[in-house]
Amino acid sequence: NQASVVANQLIPINTALTLVMMRSEVVTPVGIPAKDIPRLVSMQVNRAVPLGTTLMPDMVKGYA
């Protein structure tokens, strides 16, 4: 199973992502692939993302 990107903490709306905010985990449904973590750094979330939430492409500005 492919690992997805999961929030390692509460990420407030419009926050630029950093490595410490994200972890990889095998979850259902599948979200953004963990291999894309380096690409996500500095991108902003367009909503508040609670701890443990799988990041989906529509949550990150400029990803999709």
Rank of each mutant, 00 (worst) to 15 (best):
N1S: 15
N1W: 09
N1G: 15
N1Y: 10
Q2S: 14
Q2C: 15
Q2G: 13
Q2E: 15
Q2P: 15
Q2M: 11
Q2D: 15
A3V: 06
A3L: 13
A3T: 10
A3K: 05
S4R: 02
S4F: 02
V5L: 03
V5N: 02
V5M: 02
V5I: 07
V5P: 01
V6F: 02
V6Q: 04
V6P: 01
V6C: 05
V6D: 00
A7S: 07
A7Q: 00
N8S: 13
N8Q: 12
N8H: 14
Q9D: 08
Q9F: 15
Q9R: 07
Q9H: 06
Q9N: 05
L10Y: 08
L10E: 12
L10T: 11
L10H: 07
L10K: 08
L10M: 12
I11P: 01
I11V: 07
P12M: 14
I13T: 12
I13K: 07
I13W: 09
I13V: 13
I13R: 09
N14R: 07
N14V: 03
N14S: 07
N14K: 05
T15I: 08
T15E: 06
T15H: 07
T15V: 08
T15K: 05
A16R: 06
A16P: 13
A16V: 10
A16M: 10
A16H: 05
A16D: 06
A16L: 10
A16E: 05
A16T: 07
L17N: 00
L17V: 04
L17Q: 00
T18R: 09
T18L: 06
T18I: 05
T18W: 03
T18S: 06
L19I: 05
L19H: 06
L19M: 08
L19N: 05
L19P: 05
V20H: 08
V20R: 10
V20Y: 13
V20E: 05
V20F: 14
V20L: 14
V20D: 04
M21S: 04
M21I: 03
M21R: 03
M21V: 04
M22Q: 00
M22N: 00
M22C: 03
M22L: 08
M22D: 01
M22R: 00
R23G: 04
R23D: 04
R23K: 08
S24V: 09
S24H: 15
S24A: 11
S24F: 11
S24Q: 14
S24M: 11
E25A: 11
E25V: 05
V26W: 10
V26R: 03
V26K: 04
V26I: 12
V26Y: 10
V26Q: 10
V26D: 15
V27D: 02
V27N: 03
V27R: 07
V27H: 03
V27A: 06
V27C: 07
T28L: 06
T28G: 06
T28R: 03
T28D: 15
P29F: 08
P29W: 05
P29H: 12
P29Y: 12
P29G: 04
V30A: 12
V30S: 12
V30H: 14
V30T: 12
V30W: 12
V30I: 08
V30D: 15
V30C: 10
V30E: 15
V30R: 04
G31Q: 02
G31F: 01
I32G: 01
I32N: 00
I32H: 00
I32M: 03
P33I: 08
P33A: 13
P33D: 15
A34P: 14
A34T: 08
A34C: 15
K35Q: 15
K35M: 15
K35H: 15
K35D: 15
D36T: 04
D36G: 04
D36L: 04
D36M: 05
D36R: 03
I37C: 10
I37P: 00
I37E: 03
I37W: 03
P38N: 13
P38T: 09
P38Q: 10
P38F: 09
P38R: 04
P38D: 08
R39Y: 13
R39V: 08
R39P: 03
L40R: 00
L40V: 06
L40A: 00
L40D: 00
L40S: 00
V41P: 03
V41S: 04
V41H: 08
V41C: 11
V41Q: 08
S42T: 14
S42N: 11
S42V: 03
S42E: 08
S42D: 06
S42Q: 09
S42Y: 10
M43T: 04
M43Y: 09
M43K: 05
M43F: 12
M43A: 05
Q44E: 10
Q44R: 11
V45F: 01
V45D: 00
V45G: 01
V45C: 09
V45L: 12
N46R: 13
N46T: 12
N46Y: 14
N46D: 11
N46K: 10
N46C: 15
R47Q: 08
R47K: 14
R47M: 10
R47A: 09
R47D: 07
A48S: 13
A48K: 08
A48N: 10
A48F: 11
A48E: 09
A48I: 08
V49N: 02
V49W: 02
V49P: 02
V49S: 02
P50T: 15
P50M: 07
P50S: 12
L51Q: 12
L51A: 13
L51K: 09
L51W: 14
L51R: 07
L51V: 13
L51M: 14
G52H: 14
G52F: 07
G52K: 04
G52D: 14
G52W: 06
G52C: 08
G52T: 03
G52A: 09
G52Y: 07
G52E: 06
T53V: 11
T53G: 14
T53Q: 08
T53D: 12
T53Y: 15
T53F: 14
T54A: 06
T54S: 04
T54Q: 03
T54C: 04
T54D: 01
L55A: 00
L55I: 11
M56Y: 09
M56W: 06
M56C: 15
M56H: 09
P57A: 13
P57Y: 15
D58A: 08
D58S: 10
D58E: 12
D58P: 08
D58C: 14
D58M: 13
D58V: 08
M59Q: 05
M59E: 03
M59H: 11
M59T: 06
M59W: 08
V60H: 01
V60S: 01
V60A: 02
V60P: 01
V60C: 03
V60Y: 01
V60E: 00
K61D: 06
K61N: 14
K61I: 13
K61T: 13
G62H: 10
G62N: 11
G62A: 13
G62K: 11
G62S: 14
G62D: 10
Y63D: 03
Y63G: 03
Y63H: 04
Y63R: 03
A64C: 15
A64S: 14
A64Q: 13
